[in-house]
Design a protein around this nucleic acid. Structure first.
Lengths: 317, 317
DNA sequence: TCAATAGATGAGTAATTGCCCATGAGCAAA
DNA sequence: TTTGCTCATGGGCAATTACTCATCTATTGA
């Protein structure tokens, strides 16, 4: 075409090739013959057009914002897995959307033909999430509950997450026949030495992925509502800088586990090692903003399923 | 999510896959494992995203040849706005390229925070153009159809341009509930006195910009194909020197509106005054060469979006 | 003039993508 | 329940694209 070997000529050609490729939908072979160059050169021009951002691509769909937020969260907090679902500004539900998305992610793990170990937390969000699971046959997998399902008075309580899940997917399941909190580190030591508990502990350490809710703290926190923690103890914790809890493990605003006595009385299974396993937090909503931010900051979780509004907060924070 | 086999769920997935492919640059294999589907399904979703126009691609680089042609056209025909896109020599499409460019220009107007009135013609090219518009919220703007969307038998017909556009950009819209051609000047007089029509007429006169296709004449012209004009009438027109039409207004090879009876039966809204408003023609291709040249010569349009080949013809002419 | 250097080129090859087809699930009508 | 239909699925394979590498070319500075 133009025989002017100017520097921007190459960019012009790149633009032309990029246009033919992305807008007109020609193959690089066709572009090569149209522009009188080799196929390889056409390929280079097309990729140059991309590299130089001459070609702008955008997604015209409501979930575009979610995907972008997810990508930015992933980078900012170095996460293994992020899912951001659209927010429903009118709804006050703390589970709509993320429960479905969480179920999709759990299902993805369950579809594996290789045996996997999934660790499951508890709470309203997790309950709603596993309610979204389809019936499956997963005899090759094992699921283990990270937290106890026993009240202080000995009755089974809390959300019956692990059993519901086992029913639905028909997998071997390992509950934790302990309370969330016990009275002393020594008691925990004793309880954790029970053989059944030791199996669960071992499984927890081996888990390929864990799905956990994120608990906010405060006088209205679920932990108090459900009678696991006295309100005055909660107040002491908050005065000590507690920002949230995951499976009972309390952490401060930097996501560091609190060193006071409380965490030494948590009987839950430790979260699987973050360098090897995915520990995915499922949570959304204003009340959980601070807890989520702290958990992400301290790398307590390395995966996140949340909604767009919460994602915006976490990105701004 | 996965539990509800809704129709738009598939589009959501397509959007997600398309985003991962075109924006995030993942391979379809990666998308497949991210979304927990097979590679083939990922591929289908990606191409669905394209087919459903969820993915908008645009070229953001002034190609020297096109730029130069645009500048010369602007000078030669004293135009307010000219856009020349690269030609695809092999393609027989009459819309590829100019539709995207037209959408960019329309979007530019729509981005204004001050309220604007846009007048819109009809036809295949316009339809393709507004299909390229992204979703927007433009409650401050108004769009008015320059031509009727009613067939002689009373059914709504032709390309449903104004309504599609209103859907996409969410602006107040004013259709023209009339045929393109009516039986007599008197009937037009009566119809134009209907209050709804008068509102549209007033808006048309106030429009800040109009986007119109350029119709060629001949036995295969769209006007005949779509049943608005009998073939024998078309032949009479051509014998009388007609060279093209815009929104139904017939003009000769010098771009002068024909004075015979035909234009007195056109029920379309008159084009906005060229001294104040932009009237931008969107057209390309050999079949439109003559009509375009005439329209430019007679200053029926004062803006042009076309391709390089057509631009070359118009410059040589 | 010549060596050094940067960048472009085409061949060859690996990776990725597009498409056809057989299959089976889901569903409505018979 | 059976039949017929639609549509999503994944395997397989051909087409297309991306990348590597050795070579070539133009430019620059000594």
């Amino acid at each position: 075409m133009a025989r002017r070997p100017e520097t921007n000529n190459r960019l012009d050609d790149a633009a032309r090739a990029g246009w033919l490729y992305y807008v007109a939908g020609r193959t690089q072979d066709e572009i090569a013959s149209i522009m009188g160059i080799s196929r390889q050169s056409a390929q280079r021009l097309v990729s140059l057009a991309m590299a130089e951002r001459l070609i702008k691509v955008r997604l015209d769909h409501p979930i575009a914002g979610c995907l972008e937020a997810a990508a930015r969260l992933k980078e900012k907090y170095e996460l293994k897995h992020v899912d951001v679902v659209p927010s429903d500004p009118g709804s006050s539900s703390t589970t709509v959307g993320i429960a479905e998305a969480g179920a999709v992610e759990i299902e993805r793990w369950l579809k594996s033909t290789d045996p996997v170990v999934l660790a499951i937390g508890t709470g309203r969000t997790l309950k709603a999430t596993i309610d979204q699971l389809p019936s499956m046959e997963c005899p090759q997998h094992r699921i283990v509950s990270l937290t106890g399902n026993i009240r202080l008075d000995g009755s089974a309580a809390y959300y019956n997450v692990i059993f519901s899940m086992a029913d639905t997917i028909n997998a071997r399941h390992f509950p934790m026949p302990l309370p969330v909190l016990v009275s002393s580190p020594e008691e925990r030591e004793v309880l954790h030495n029970q053989s059944l508990v030791k199996i669960a502990l071992k499984l927890g350490a081996e888990a390929n992925a864990a799905f956990v809710g994120v608990g906010e703290l405060g006088p209205d926190a679920p932990l108090c509502e459900d009678g696991f923690l006295a309100r005055e103890e909660m107040e002491r914790l908050m005065a000590a800088g507690a920002a949230g809890e995951i499976c009972g493990w309390m952490f401060d605003h930097d996501g560091e586990l609190l060193t006071g006595s409380i965490n030494e009385r948590v009987a839950s299974i430790p979260l699987p090692p973050r360098d090897r396993a995915s520990v995915i937090g499922i949570a959304k909503g204003k009340r959980k903003y601070e807890a989520l931010r702290a958990a992400l900051k301290g790398r307590i979780i390395n995966g996140l399923i949340t909604d767009e509004t919460t994602a915006d907060f976490l990105l701004g924070a």
